[in-house]
Structure formats: structure tokens, C-alpha cells
């Protein structure tokens, strides 16, 4: 310290204390960088705030209509109390239940199709494929995620609808099943990628232990690797489900978009997302219809947020399970 501060060759060196090699402007830039990083936080908060802002007046203006949003009602011309979504009817009917049912029907069907296919593919790529096959096939499957959903919607509308029509002779060309198959195409890469990661995260030592105990490959895979990766696989399904619920263009184009309430997989159906996309453009700002559509947006935001949190915590659980409680980060 004193030695450093002592003059060298006559020229006095400044003291280290309070030295400023980093200029002031640089410190300001560093502040700016930190500020920019928080744009994402501001964005998430404002998405919720500004979508909710358009929906909020529902709760103080015309509050007497609130129960009609979710409860069946005896409408004129109907035999029994019913859930009806008919925003341009007279009177306008904004019961969101048919939309929720349509969403569950289509996403549920899509998960039934996509889940097993994606999981089986992940098992093949993570456990069985030779390295060279894996290096080609894995990115190829992930490329699926690079096809715009409007293109998949078009494909469902033209090809899948045609195919199913020929196969089953359906009443409605466009229906929940068509949309679900199209939707499955967008879920597959999500479920595949996350479950493949989970399977690969299972340490090699467990596979070796299993093999050394005389387990066959299928036994190692089904009795050791898949159970060990289970939280990650659950996360994959949850995240895939979240993606499916939020998907818009495919269901908008291929579902037939009639808000029908029944259990048939081949009747027309309408999801929350498709309803917003199809109707908001022709809705007057500030009307009840407008507010209900934004409220549906808030609902979507909250549901996908919750599903995402569930997925993230399942992945964290997987890490703890495979590497012990101390491997938290």
C-alpha cells in the first residue's frame, strides 16, 4: 500500500484510495443496463394491467349482468336455462361457459394425441437412438416449432379436414377434432423438447447401475429412467397444455368456430382465443362485449401463468430428485 503510493521515478502515483479508473459515464451506462433489464418486468405487469383495465368496468357498470357470464339462464326462445354465447343476439348473451368447454374439448383432444406421440419420440431420441440419428432427428422435430401457426391452421383447414371428412363422413367439415389434430402439431415439439431434456438429465450412473443389475434396455428405460424423469415429463405435459390453451390461429381456422355445448369430438367448437380473435375487430370499445373479451384475455393470462409456474416447479422438483436437495440453482 505505502510502497505503491510512493513516488516512482519522480512521478507521483495517485493513491489507490478513492481512485477512479472507471469513468463516471460508465457507471451511468451500467445503471441504464440494469434499467433496461427491468423492461421485461414492466412488460409483464403492464400486460396484466392494461388488459384488465379494459375489462374492469364489468365489475361496476351493469353489475347485474355478472352472473350471466357463467350461470345458465332462461333466455327467450329457449326451453330450459342454458349457457349461450351470442354477443350479437338480442339481448346479447355473454355466457363464457360454452367457450371454456370448447377450449377444454379441443385442448384435451390435442393433448391426448400429442402427449403420447411426443413422449414416445422423446424416449426414442434420449434412450435408444444412436448419436448420429439423434443429432439429425432432434433438431428436425424442434423445427416443427418454427412453422407459423397460421400455416398449421391452413394445413388443418385444407388437408386434415379433408382427410377426416373422407375417413368418417362427418356432418361438419370443420370441427373440434380437426382443430385438435392441428393443435397437436404445435404441442408435440414442446412436450418432446421438455421431456427429452428431462430424460437426458437422468444421470448415466443410474442407467449403468440398472444394466449392471441385469436389467434389459426396456427395463432400464421403463423402470429407472422414465420414473426418475417423471417430474420433468409432467412439466412437459403442463407446458404443452399451456401452449395449447393459448394457441389462436389454428383453432380460429379449423374448429368451425360455433360455440356448441356438447361432448362430441366432431361437433363444431369454439375456444376462448378464437372468440377474441374473431370478434374483437367488430366490437365497439367500452361495450359489454368488449369488456367480456378483455376479461377472457385476463383469464387466459392467469391460466397460462399458473400452468407455467406449475411446469417450472416440476422441473425444479426433478432437479432436486436427481441431484439431491442441495442442487437448487
Amino acid at each position: 500500500m505505502t510502497a505503491l503510493a510512493r513516488p516512482v521515478r519522480g512521478k507521483p502515483r495517485p493513491s489507490l484510495l478513492g481512485s477512479t479508473a472507471t469513468p463516471r459515464w460508465e457507471r451511468i451506462v451500467e445503471r441504464l443496463i440494469a434499467a433496461v433489464a427491468f423492461v421485461s418486468v414492466a412488460a409483464v405487469l403492464s400486460i396484466l394491467a392494461f388488459v384488465a383495465r379494459e375489462a374492469a368496468p364489468l365489475f361496476w357498470e351493469g353489475r347485474e349482468h355478472l352472473p350471466d357470464l357463467i350461470l345458465p339462464r332462461q333466455w327467450a326462445g329457449y326451453d330450459a336455462p342454458a349457457h349461450v354465447w351470442q354477443p350479437v343476439g338480442f339481448p346479447p348473451k355473454h355466457d363464457v361457459v360454452p367457450l371454456l368447454i370448447g377450449t377444454l374439448k379441443i385442448t384435451g383432444l390435442a393433448m391426448l394425441v400429442a402427449g403420447p406421440i411426443a413422449l414416445l419420440s422423446a424416449v426414442y431420441i434420449a434412450e435408444l437412438a444412436p448419436r448420429r440419428v439423434r443429432e439429425v432427428v432432434k433438431p428436425a422435430i424442434e423445427l416443427f416449432a418454427g412453422i407459423p401457426s397460421v400455416v398449421l391452421g391452413f394445413f388443418s383447414l385444407v388437408f386434415i379436414a379433408h382427410f377426416l371428412e373422407r375417413l368418417f363422413g362427418l356432418t361438419y367439415r370443420l370441427n373440434a377434432l380437426v382443430a385438435a389434430l392441428g393443435l397437436a402439431l404445435t404441442i408435440i415439439p414442446v412436450v418432446f423438447t421438455v421431456s427429452e431434456d428431462a430424460l437426458r438429465a437422468v444421470p448415466k450412473s443410474l442407467r449403468e447401475a440398472s444394466a449392471a443389475l441385469g436389467a434389459r434396455r426396456w427395463q432400464t428405460t421403463l423402470l429407472v429412467v422414465v420414473p426418475a424423469a417423471l417430474p420433468g415429463i409432467a412439466a412437459a405435459f403442463v407446458l404443452g397444455f399451456g401452449r395449447a390453451i393459448g394457441e389462436t390461429m389454428i383453432v380460429l381456422m379449423a374448429s368451425g368456430i360455433a360455440p356448441v355445448v356438447d361432448a362430441s369430438p366432431v361437433s363444431s367448437a369454439r375456444t376462448v382465443t378464437a372468440t377474441i380473435a374473431a370478434e374483437l375487430g367488430e366490437t365497439a370499445r367500452g361495450g359489454e362485449h368488449w369488456r367480456v373479451l378483455f376479461a377472457l384475455g385476463v383469464l387466459l393470462f392467469l391460466i397460462t401463468w399458473a400452468l407455467d409456474r406449475m411446469g417450472a416447479s416440476a422441473v425444479a422438483r426433478l432437479r432436486r430428485r436427481l441431484h439431491g436437495p442441495e442442487a437448487e440453482s
Binding site: 400486460i47 388488459v51 390453451i245 393459448g246 394457441e247 389462436t248 377474441i276 384475455g297 401463468w305 407455467d308
Partner: peptide
């Protein structure tokens, strides 16, 4: 994770 249609509303 926010659905694209919610971005539209936002």
C-alpha cells in the same frame, strides 16, 4: 408463456 392473442389485446 403469455398467449399471443393476449399480446394482441395488450
Amino acid at each position: 408463456a403469455v398467449p399471443s392473442i393476449v399480446f394482441g389485446l395488450f
